[in-house]
Nucleic acid binder design. Structure first.
Length: 528
RNA sequence: GCGGUCGUAGCUCAGUUGGUUAGAGCGCAGGAUUGUGGCUCCUGAGGUCGUAGGUUCGAUCCCCACCGACCGUACCA
């Protein structure tokens, strides 16, 4: 044993978590549900390693020989830099480029896996987390983007989020580019600053975004964030993106035909969405006059919307929203994200806006980075860990739905008795019942039941010398016993009464256990 | 990275204006009860007071640095 002085401290690196039985089971269940949707859409699985050459990820620091700080990196023995993948898209691009001649395009593929980001962790943000992606490589048409949006909606419902509790919001980077072009912003750094500022709307509100677009913003600790340096007129132009929605809403509210139509039910959800969307496109076209790129983006959005309508997803599941940005640089066209709209309490029970649980978009440049020809691609990513957290906080995660094993207790240590216990255990297992024989120190019998109790075992099997002599076993219902214990005060009575315990013949053990488990299951069903 | 708050037992936290053996509750282990979970009672283990320096006769307390946690902010490709 290690000396006290040089004992190694057991500690988990920050931003990482150990996963327990219930997390793993719940995750497996969720992954299966998502996989089923992807398969139904005709996507096939592929797996790539967690490590890639850093240049394949495109993650070298500008003007330096070192990988970006955000990725975990190490140097191979040939001095080449390797990095842990930070998303699943860049490795897919590498895979497709490397196997270009063998892969039939359009390539429809999905994969789940852990990704790693060397960033400051926060609540619900980790340095290792799971994503579940689907992509179509080699599909130039926005029909592929529309399909992605519809599939995202189906995934939400497959994991138990009801219609109306989520929304897939769609925009197009070209629209944003068009707006920036229209106000004369051409410098890449400034463009990025503007995009980041827009992305912070839900965090800081319109006023905060205004400051970030202009001179800058000071937070409550006194820290100052430099802004994009736009002038008043330019800021207004950018903020139009958010105001289109408001203007359209105002126009509807002040139109008596509309309000009456909604009240009388003539305008249903789908019709309302149609009117809303028309308003947004009207606003977009009006504000993008003179920007070829912006108009191209609006046209693509219109095409996506037409397909959403054709697919029947125009009932609020998918919406056009010019304020969607997405952080990643590599998007070239449509971008989308799925947001939970349900009221979700956090760990402290406060209602918070949970935000995005998945997102994606078109990345036409990513595969062609490796090849001399254009390879259009689009896809999206579900943040499995975030989605899990949301479902857990919503109370939609069926916890403890795996029953703990039946415990076969050990009362005597001689070979005859031990053989019996082993036999009981295997017979239960052969009948498909989770069972285990007590493997701790059996000499303290009370500890065995305490163990069973804490483990949540539904039943305990007991056979001492007396029962063995009569070829009998006792089956103790631990759930019922626990309930009865509330009525008993003295320990002597509690022990001698042996509550919720039955004696059966050895050969009836399996049948009796099955019957008692079924009864417990029926009780649970009534309670739930 | 920047700013702030904090760090005492496995957990939640007291405490000392700088002074001898640092406490409680919960949890854990043993016993009352050598064949029965819960309740009750008794007993016990467990602490370099985050780490390392400095000031001091003396530091868990004051000062400095580092580490870690939390909050805000930046970054999030």
């Amino acid at each position: 044993m290690a000396n006290k002085a040089d004992k190694v401290k057991a500690r988990l690196p920050r931003g990482l978590v150990d996963r327990h039985a219930s997390d793993i089971r719940a995750t497996d269940k969720m992954l299966a549900a998502i996989r089923e949707v992807y398969e139904r859409y005709g996507f096939d699985p592929v797996e790539t390693p967690m490590l890639e050459y850093t240049d394949a990820l495109g993650k070298f620091l500008p003007d330096q020989d070192r990988p970006n700080e955000g990725v975990f990196s190490l140097q191979d023995d040939d001095e080449q830099w390797l990095s842990l993948r930070y998303d699943l898209t860049a490795p897919l691009a590498r895979h497709v480029a490397e196997n270009f001649n063998e892969i039939q395009l359009p390539y429809r593929t999905y994969r789940a896996g852990y990704v790693f980001r060397n960033e400051k962790p926060g609540p619900g943000r980790f340095r290792q987390f799971m994503q579940f992606d689907a992509d179509t490589v080699g599909a130039p048409s926005v029909a592929a983007d529309a399909e992605m949006c519809m599939m995202m909606a189906d995934v939400m419902e497959a994991v138990g989020i009801k219609r109306g509790e989520y929304v897939v919001r769609v925009n197009n980077r070209k629209v944003l580019d068009g707006v920036m072009e229209a106000i004369g912003v051409t410098e890449e750094g400034q463009k990025l600053t503007i995009l980041r500022a827009i992305d912070k709307l839900d965090k800081f509100g319109l006023e905060g975004v205004k400051l970030l677009l202009g001179a800058g913003r000071k937070d409550e600790s006194g820290d100052f964030t430099k802004g994009a340096g736009l002038n008043e007129r330019q800021i207004d132009k950018v903020l139009i993106l958010f105001k289109i929605e408001d203007f359209a809403a105002e126009a509807r509210a002040s139109n008596s035909h509309y309000t009456e139509g909604v009240e009388s039910g003539i305008i249903d959800a789908r019709k309302a969405e149609d009117i809303r969307t028309k308003g947004i496109f009207g606003g977009l076209l009006h504000n993008l006059v003179g920007s070829a790129r912006g108009l191209e983006g609006a046209t693509e959005l219109q095409q996506i919307w037409d397909m959403v309508v054709a697919g029947g997803y125009d009932d609020g599941r998918i919406r056009i929203d010019p304020s969607v940005v997405r952080g990643l640089e590599y998007y070239t066209g449509p971008v989308f994200e799925v947001e939970l709209t349900a009221q979700i309490p956090n760990e402290k029970g406060e209602i918070v806006r949970f935000g995005s649980v998945g997102g994606g978009g078109r990345y036409d440049g990513l595969v062609s980075r490796f090849r001399g020809q254009p390879v259009p691609a689009t896809g999206f990513s579900i943040g499995v860990s975030r989605l899990m957290t949301a479902l857990k906080n919503l109370g939609k995660l069926g916890e403890g739905d795996v029953l703990a094993p039946v415990l076969v207790t050990v009362m005597d240590g001689d070979m005859e008795a031990m053989g019996k216990y082993q036999d009981f255990t295997q017979k239960l297992r052969a009948a498909g019942i989770r069972a285990e024989m007590y493997q701790g120190n059996w000499k303290k019998f009370g500890n065995q039941l305490k163990y069973a109790d804490r483990r949540g075992a539904p039943l305990a099997i007991i056979q001492g010398a007396d029962e063995r002599a009569n070829a009998q076993v006792q089956i103790k219902d631990l759930i019922e016993g626990k309930r009865l214990s509330e009525e008993i005060e003295s320990n002597e009575e509690w022990r001698s009464s042996r509550p919720a315990q039955v004696t059966v013949k050895e050969e009836d053990l399996v049948a009796a256990v099955k019957r008692m488990l079924d009864e417990q299951a029926a009780d649970r069903a009534v309670g739930a």
